[in-house]
Design a protein around this nucleic acid. Structure first.
Length: 155
DNA sequence: GCCAACGTTGGC
DNA sequence: GCCAACGTTGGC
């Protein structure tokens, strides 16, 4: 069992949007970064837990929790010429972009702000706190995950 | 809106 | 295979 963090811009897709999807489930399409793709394709398992992180918004931070509900999916938007995620080099035989589906688990009472995450002396490995890290999907170490979850659930 | 940092592209 | 130029990310 591994732990992850998925960034999303709440203006386009927020933790509330995930919660309101049928079955609280959404294919995480549109990722066009190889490192992030490789995490999804090669390292995720069903029931892995994932923080949903809101970026590029008023209070960037961890907004909720989801779990990986399906793995090994092909991102359909790569084949759609009208999509902004269209990839002309992808073919049905040889897709380039893979994804997983996430299912809503929990929305925190308030967002755990990035500013607070950065103040935690024990959170050092998380990509978010490392300078220049722009990964949209990143692993979270088990002990850091546990610590962040506890912080986020504080009333 | 700024801008630092990063990933990708493409000419050579 | 190098690397400059470009586009994007994302906090502030």
């Amino acid at each position: 069992m591994r732990y992850w963090l998925f960034k999303t811009e709440p203006d386009s897709f927020s933790i509330d949007d995930l919660a309101h999807r049928p079955d609280g489930t959404e294919g995480w399409d549109g990722v066009r970064n190889y490192q992030a793709r490789n995490f999804m394709r090669d390292q995720m398992s069903v029931d892995d837990l994932a923080f949903i992180y809101h970026s590029s918004c008023k209070v960037p931070g961890i907004a909720g929790l989801a779990k990986v509900s399906q793995t090994g999916l092909v991102d359909p938007t790569q084949f759609e010429p009208e999509s902004k995620y269209y990839d002309p080099k992808a073919t049905l035989e040889q897709p380039r972009w893979h994804m997983v589906a996430l299912t809503f688990v929990e929305k925190f009472n308030q967002v755990l702000p990035l500013s607070m995450i950065k103040q935690q002396p024990n959170i050092t490995k998380l990509g978010l706190v490392q300078k220049g890290s722009r990964l949209s999907i990143m692993p979270v170490a088990p002990n850091e995950f546990e610590q962040l979850l506890e912080l986020a659930r504080k009333p």
